[in-house]
Design a protein around this nucleic acid. Structure first.
Lengths: 199, 199
DNA sequence: CATACTATGTTGACAATGTAAACATTATCT
DNA sequence: AGATAATGTTTACATTGTCAACATAGTATG
């Protein structure tokens, strides 16, 4: 009742959608190109017309998820405009929460080897075209705007806060530690003094 | 010239050794049971006499690597006995260095989903039998011994420091950021104030 | 020592998977 | 309308994890 069209029409988009769906249900290890193809009702090699190989599809899914995350970050920033400490706290909370609630997304975003790392040189960040940079920049825009802080000083603070948040997130997602109670409380507590001093 | 014995003798140990070797050369994704078997000069199903499946072999390798890491930690602690701030710095440096220099080990130790997470409840750590706990305990033994600090307070500090170190490590290993220069300098800078205050 | 049992290896088979090549169908552009 | 590019399909193959059936060697028990 379905094979009405030889050409699918939106296969590329559907591969990404269904791919993400599959990921979330079976995990990265059991993810398979053929299954995604089946979910889209096409032959198992059809995806090769849109993606060079499995890795490329995964990369496309990563990008899609990253965009979603970026939107959320922007919202959080907008809701706390001009209150930099609040922004840092809000984005940090969002960072942890999003990844904990979407562990497969997390793996996509961070576990896969990435091409353009953020570069830190002589204590300062150097812009690259990587997606994460935009998140990072927004997160610490408050630090940068405080002109009483030198660039290499706020860069170090930024690195510290980000490392802290990222580490806590990673350990929660990978089940290295289990935090009983609201893990966002822990985030607040850990950041509190640092943020207070900073801005 | 090799097939002298039907029974290998040390197959279990050699599977772990050669497995680790393979890991380090081709990475976790391309790791295959059959290749490991071949490297040991046995048939492709021989490993099944020693490990239930691929995952079990990987787990065994993890354990082996973890032990190696633990030994190094113990050394670092011994070298700085009774100087708790120095211990924390030394172990932190070791933590980052070991993982950056052995990225595949890192993936084994932390990326694979783990069974017994460290549990943090009501601001305190609860002991489980997981390997990482012993590292963790040693790392923060100095904090615990300082009786002017309450348990939930040093627990939070411990969580903060560990998150920071782990996050920085993770980002370096996954190429999320690239630190030009000696990344251990960054570790020192980030921890400096925290450690100074603490102990 | 002979026999049975257990541990350890091997062969052969199978299904799932990624991917390439050859071919089919449809869209698009002149 | 006919050529060309885009998009799908079928077939084929190599790798892989895993199972079942069988082979061999060590060990224990009579």
């Amino acid at each position: 009742m379905k094979k009405e069209k030889y050409h699918h029409g939106f296969l590329e988009k559907e591969l990404i959608e269904k791919g993400l769906q599959l990921l979330n249900s079976v995990g990265l290890e059991a993810f398979s190109l053929r299954k995604v193809a089946e979910m889209c009702g096409v032959s198992h090699t059809a995806p090769y017309r849109h993606f060079k190989n499995k890795e490329e599809l995964i990369y496309a899914i990563t990008t899609s998820v990253s965009d979603e995350f970026t939107s959320l970050i922007n919202e959080a920033l907008a809701e706390n405009e001009d209150d930099y400490p609040k922004q840092i706290m809000a984005v940090s909370n969002l960072y942890v929460k999003f990844m904990v609630e979407n562990p497969e997304h997390f793996k996509f975003i961070f576990m896969t080897d990435h091409h353009n790392p953020i570069i830190m040189k002589n204590g300062k960040f150097i812009k690259t075209d990587r997606w994460i940079v935009s998140v990072f920049e927004k997160l610490f825009i408050g630090l940068r705007k405080n002109e009483s802080i030198s660039e290499s000083s706020w860069s170090l603070d930024a690195l510290t806060i980000w490392s802290l948040i990222h580490g806590f997130t990673t350990m929660l997602v990978n089940n290295t530690i289990k935090y009983e109670g609201d893990y966002l409380d822990a985030v607040s507590l850990m950041l509190e003094e640092k943020v207070k001093i900073l801005v």
